[in-house]
């Protein structure tokens, strides 16, 4: 019994169906973690990409080191680091927030590279035209560069959404009760891991497929030349 739902272990099928509502609660946690993490990755990644282009060497260099470090270390290590080390500095976050933050940071490092590539792919002539029209740096990014790079980066950003979704179960190691966490607990109590874990896998499959399809549809729908933000 969990969250008020009892399981029925008489056959694998009844077992599977009876734990479905419980896993559904975990699914919401998974989706929320992915959503928060992805939002962080989209925004903070862009910030990192822009800072890395800063004319001030100290800033661009620090950011370059940070992204390299985060990209080249395992998510699990960063997760543990945030979960166990931050509290020593008096920063105590709920497990869920810590998890989402770790996901967000890790993927910010990835998305910042995507943004960087996207920015570099905007032809030099576009920057020069913006300068000749006296647009400020901010206006150039907002009105000229970012709108043009969006169609180029959607596929890569979409791939990261899918892989982030698939990595959310790692949050269960810091006591977040996502799908995997709950499946694990059900397994502990019923001594049957096969059914709950298989269910988790089965639920992930359509989710990632739907995500991929959605991204493909967005990619097709976007005008190739870019979309004005204002």
């Amino acid at each position: 019994m969990m969250y008020g739902y009892a399981w029925d272990t008489s056959t694998p099928l009844t077992f599977a169906l009876s734990i479905l509502p419980i896993l559904g609660i975990g699914l919401m946690v998974t989706l929320k973690a992915a959503a928060v993490g992805y939002a962080i990755a989209l925004v903070f990644g862009l910030v990192l990409a822009l800072l890395r282009r800063s004319r001030i060497k100290a800033i661009s260099w620090t950011v370059a080191c940070f992204t390299e470090f985060v990209r080249d270390t395992p998510l699990l290590v960063q997760l543990f680091f945030l979960y166990y080390v931050l509290p020593e500095f008096g920063i105590i976050l709920p497990a869920f927030m810590t998890g989402a933050l770790a996901l967000g940071l890790q993927y910010s490092a990835y998305t910042s590279e995507v943004y960087r590539g996207g920015i570099n792919a905007v032809p030099r002539g576009q920057w020069e035209a913006a300068t000749a029209l006296n647009l400020s740096r901010l206006q150039t990014y907002r009105d000229i560069v970012v709108p043009q790079m969006i169609p180029r980066i959607v596929p890569a950003l979409g791939n990261y959404l899918v892989s982030m979704l698939k990595e959310t179960p790692v949050l269960s190691v810091v006591t977040v009760l996502d799908m995997l966490g709950l499946a694990n607990m059900i397994g502990e109590r019923t001594f049957d891991y096969l059914v709950p874990l298989s269910m988790v896998g089965l639920i992930f499959l359509p989710m990632t497929l739907i995500c991929s399809a959605l991204i493909f549809a967005i990619e097709r729908a976007l005008p190739k030349s870019g979309i004005p933000l204002r």
Partner: peptide, 14 residues
Amino acid sequence: VGMVFQSFNLFPHM
């Protein structure tokens, strides 16, 4: 100052 470029450099998304 204004400038007209060899390759036009219009903003393609506008």
